[in-house]
Each structure stands twice: as C-alpha cells, then as structure tokens.
Amino acid sequence: MSLLEIRQLKKAYAAPEGGTHVVVDVPEFSLAAQAQVALSGESGSGKTTFLNLIAGILTPDTGSIKFNGQELAGLTEPARDRVRATSIGYIFQTFNLLQGYTALENVLLGMSFGPGADRGFAKLLLKRVGLEAKLDHLPRQLSTGQQQRVAVARALANRPKLVLADEPTGNLDHANAREALTLIREACRENGAALLLVSHDREVLGQFETVQELAKLNRAAK
C-alpha cells in the first residue's frame, strides 16, 4: 500500500482580475513508504501549493489525499495539524527557523506539537547533521548551510513517515547544496521516512533515481 495516494486533486485561487486561477490539478500521484522522489518544476508551477496540500496546510477544492490510509481532505483543521505534527516533516527553501530560539530549541519546538519534546533525540539529530557543537547557537550565529541542517534535524524530530522538502538547496551555494541534499536523503533513509522533494535544480534532480516532472503531473502547470 502506498504511503501517499492522490486522486483528482484540484486547488484554485481567486484571480486578481476576477474568476479563478487553477494552480494544482493532479489526476493521480502516489508515493510508497520510504521512497525518495523528486518533482521537477519551474517557479510558479504550483510546487509549493502541491506540498502544502499534502501537508494539510491548505485544503483542496476537490479530490482526495490519502496519507497513511487516512483521508486528509475530510479532516478538520486541528486534525490535519495533528497529522502534520506527528507524521510529516517539512523542510523549506528559506529554512524557516525561529530566530529567537537556539538550534536545539528549534528542534525541540518541532517536537513539542507532536509526541513531546525529547531532548536526547533532538541532540542526537543535531549530532547526526554535524551540529553537536552548535546546540546553543541562534540561527543568526550559524551559516546558511548550518541553518539548513538545523531545519533537516527539525523535520525529522517527530520521526515522520514523510518528509516534504521545498527547494531545500535553493538558498545554498554549490558545495553546501550537495552536502545538504546528501544529508537529507541519508537522514530520511536512516529514520525510515519517505522523501518528496521539489526542485528546479538539474543537479539536485540528477541525484534522484525517481524524478517526476510537475508539468506532466500537474495539468494546471502546462
């Protein structure tokens, strides 16, 4: 059974000039447990909206998103929040770390909405991403590569079944991007999490065995 199954998923926004603008129109998509899949797509192709729908941050206008056998589209907002807090990790292009919190606190915060803060596991994750000496550093005291590693640790903090990564190397230089990508893939594999990554970077996409073009997947992107 797939971890994630999507059917006839549609999402449209009100257009400034009136009417609606369809951003996501995905007839079918599935992702197996522990699989690692990359979606390629240019800016404006609806990648972020697609990931936000899967994460339950947005609700679809129509269609079905079955995650781990549970229909997300039918859940209330608090129930979707709960699914996100316990089973889905999210890595953003801009890292989205909370600036007033240390690296360790950012990871602990990611846990606190799910199963609860586990200081030992948080430290272990930060050690895994090479930041054991930077636990008490604030994001501004870390390099961009280090900030992204904190974001990776945070995404894995709740032992998620699925990690969504939205252009995770978009703000990194070449060396850091390669390193971060390797880390994300290894960390997901070690923690038994499936990875769904979106990027427009050919080099990033080239490292995945399975790459799907969003232009083919999302009819609205054509």
């Binding site: 608090p78 929040d81 709960r82 996100r84 807090a85 989205n96 909370l98 945070r154 709740n158």
Partner: peptide, 16 residues
C-alpha cells in the same frame, strides 16, 4: 506572522 506560520507548519494548532 511568519513565526506563527512556521509554528503552524510544525503542527501547532490555531487555538494553541
């Protein structure tokens, strides 16, 4: 707003 959005993305409920 951004911090709130981050917390929500991490799973914080709106009423939290």
């Amino acid at each position: 707003r951004r911090d709130i959005a981050i917390l929500r993305a991490l799973g914080a409920r709106a009423h939290t």
